[in-house]
Nucleic acid binder design. Structure first.
Lengths: 195, 195
DNA sequence: CCTAACTTTTGATAAAAGTCAAAAAAACAC
DNA sequence: GTGTTTTTTTGACTTTTATCAAAAGTTAGG
């Protein structure tokens, strides 16, 4: 029973990967062997600035935010991630440099946890896994690019409207203060825009 | 002689790739077979909005910019790329959707040209090529993420100073009008910041 | 050179968004 | 439920940046 529930948590991860490139049983086993499930409470810090960002998470249930502190010590959210999405601090995880970002859960969350060391082993052992990794990196890159373009091109109001249109559920799960910093505007301005 | 010059153009590309993962002779041959060299003049448009973005370029010499038109028809630069860098319109190339961006050379430029179709063939035929593709995607993703963070976090003046510090050569090769839109500010504001 | 085209700067004004402080509303805990 | 904490809204004012128009400077060709 416990074992079955445990495997259940991997099904969505495998489905996401399999839709990109067929996953061999060996690779599935390796993923299970090289990872574990974690249940964490809301507002749990998974990564702090200065630490080495050596873990990648797949969100089975729940959600998290990535943020950093600006020069006045104010939190700026760069990303919100929910079920069936991968969760990392991009800069730290990809470069190996100490993180300047924090990761914190927004809700009680179930995660599949993989250390970068193990991930890198799998990338070397299963070359086809790089196909999947490449595609996923492309996917998140696009999202990031859209974000950067909108910050450059749209006014505060337009960015809000765009987000509301593209991702209305976000407003159900994340406070307006958090969304404001994600949009690159002050909470007061967001409040005024919404009227 | 011609042949040698021709191969010479591939050396930097191979060096970049080889630093990530050893390139087999077969893969090198495949890359040469599936690509060609192009010499283009300054201000040549390599991609226009609405077109399918089905080509990836490696810049052997010269440089290019990626831009789009905002709702008032004004050009907004999203990227400047120079020798030994890869050149694509990210969104269009990765999604297969029609491009909303333009690519234009900034200088007379020598390019290695690969069609996405051929690239995808190589990704399937040489699984280790995905290792290289993944790493390169990660690298450009990080650059993009830094850009997005700076747009969100820094004032116009700080963004200018950051760019000047990180990439001073850019100011030698790109006009201030182009840099202004890249920084997400008006040309007049950039001019005032610089005093 | 010298003109034409393009790029950068300057000035005046307007619009957008931030800051600070406090009130109101909502969510949470006992 | 009632008090406490957190989140959101509101008001007054300031700062930042955009816009429009024009002048000055620079570059490239004939």
């Amino acid at each position: 029973m416990l074992k079955e529930n445990y495997l259940q948590d991997y099904q969505n991860l495998f489905a996401v990967f399999n839709a990109i490139h067929p996953l061999s049983e060996e690779l599935k086993s390796a993923i299970i062997k090289n990872s574990h499930i974690a249940q964490v409470k809301r507002k749990t810090t998974l990564l702090s600035a200065g630490e080495s960002s050596n873990t990648i998470y797949f969100i089975v249930a729940g959600g998290a935010r990535v943020y950093y502190l600006d020069k006045d010590g104010k939190q700026t959210n760069t990303w919100f991630l929910f079920e069936n999405e991968l969760l990392i601090s991009v800069y730290g995880f990809f470069t190996g440099q100490p993180s300047f970002e924090y990761i914190e859960t927004l809700e009680d969350t179930t995660l599949i946890v993989v250390k970068r060391e193990k991930l890198d082993e799998m990338y070397l052992q299963f070359m086809e896994f790089n196909f999947i990794g490449r595609k996923l990196t492309e996917y998140y890159y696009i999202r990031n690019e859209i974000q950067a373009n909108e910050l450059r091109m749209l006014s505060a109001k337009e960015r809000y409207e765009q987000l509301l249109k593209r991702n209305p559920q976000l407003f159900q799960r994340v406070s307006l203060g958090h969304i404001a910093s994600y949009l690159g505007i002050s909470q007061e301005t967001l409040s005024r825009i919404r009227k």
